[in-house]
Computed example of a mutant assay.
Amino acid sequence: MVDMARWAPQEIDTMAAIASEVVAQVGTNRTVIAVDGQDGTDLEHVAAALVAGFEQHGVQAMAAAASSTDADALRTDLVTPFRTTGAGEGVLVVHGHGLLGPSTRTLWRWSLWVEQETGRLERRADVKIAASAVLDVTDPDHPRREWNDAC
């Protein structure tokens, strides 16, 4: 019996595909997106990889750590300054746990929920449904975009 390894895209390919999805859905004119996820996921790494994905498409992007999960503080510290200091194309990827809570969901034009196999049963359906996309990082070298379909 031949052992055939299952092919999976590299991280940069997955993140470039997700960046392409963001560009198609919401554009890149001072766009602010959120990266939130399950406890234990490296959201800073995912945000940096997503920034690299945007750069693959020639889109200027930068990542920032959320200062809190308070909507007013996030708006004052990150969202408003990014949207008002500069013109044209640009994406800000804000990362932090709790960014897809009910009080902060409206700050983001697009959002990514990050999870891994460990503890998947505890994943929170309410924030997953709020996310624009779901990313499985069980294999960090080969993250997978999951289709969180309701059908």
Rank of each mutant, 00 (worst) to 15 (best):
V2P: 15
V2H: 15
D3P: 02
M4C: 11
M4R: 11
A5N: 13
R6I: 15
A8N: 12
A8V: 09
A8W: 09
A8L: 12
A8F: 10
Q10K: 12
E11W: 07
I12H: 14
I12V: 14
D13I: 11
M15R: 10
M15F: 15
A16H: 04
A16I: 08
S20C: 05
V23L: 04
Q25N: 06
G27L: 06
G27A: 09
N29K: 07
R30Y: 04
T31N: 02
V32I: 06
I33C: 03
A34Q: 01
V35G: 04
V35L: 04
D36I: 09
Q38I: 04
Q38L: 05
G40R: 02
G40A: 08
T41M: 03
L43N: 04
H45T: 15
V46N: 00
A47M: 06
A47F: 08
A48P: 02
A48M: 09
L50P: 05
G53T: 12
G53L: 08
F54E: 11
E55A: 03
G58W: 04
G58E: 09
V59C: 07
V59G: 07
Q60P: 12
A61P: 10
M62N: 01
A63S: 13
A63Q: 07
A66Y: 03
S67Y: 00
S67R: 00
S68F: 04
S68K: 01
S68Q: 02
S68V: 02
D70C: 05
A71R: 08
A71G: 05
D72T: 09
D72Y: 01
A73W: 00
L74W: 05
L74F: 08
R75W: 03
T76G: 10
T76Y: 07
D77S: 13
V79L: 12
T80R: 09
T80A: 14
T80V: 14
P81Q: 06
P81Y: 00
P81K: 02
F82L: 09
F82S: 06
R83Q: 15
R83E: 14
T84S: 12
T84K: 02
T84W: 00
T85S: 11
G88L: 08
L92M: 14
V94F: 10
V94Y: 08
H95M: 08
H95S: 14
G96F: 03
H97L: 11
H97N: 11
G98C: 08
L99Y: 02
L100E: 01
L100S: 06
G101R: 08
G101I: 07
T104V: 09
T104L: 11
R105A: 15
T106M: 14
T106D: 15
L107P: 10
S111C: 10
S111E: 06
W113L: 12
W113P: 00
V114C: 13
E115R: 12
Q116Y: 03
T118I: 14
G119A: 09
G119H: 03
R123Y: 02
R123V: 13
R124S: 14
A125G: 08
K128Q: 13
A130Q: 01
A133R: 13
A133T: 13
A133L: 13
L135V: 07
L135N: 01
L135E: 03
D136E: 08
D136M: 05
P140T: 09
D141E: 15
H142P: 11
P143G: 11
R144L: 11
R144H: 03
R145N: 03
R145L: 14
W147Q: 13
D149W: 00
D149M: 12
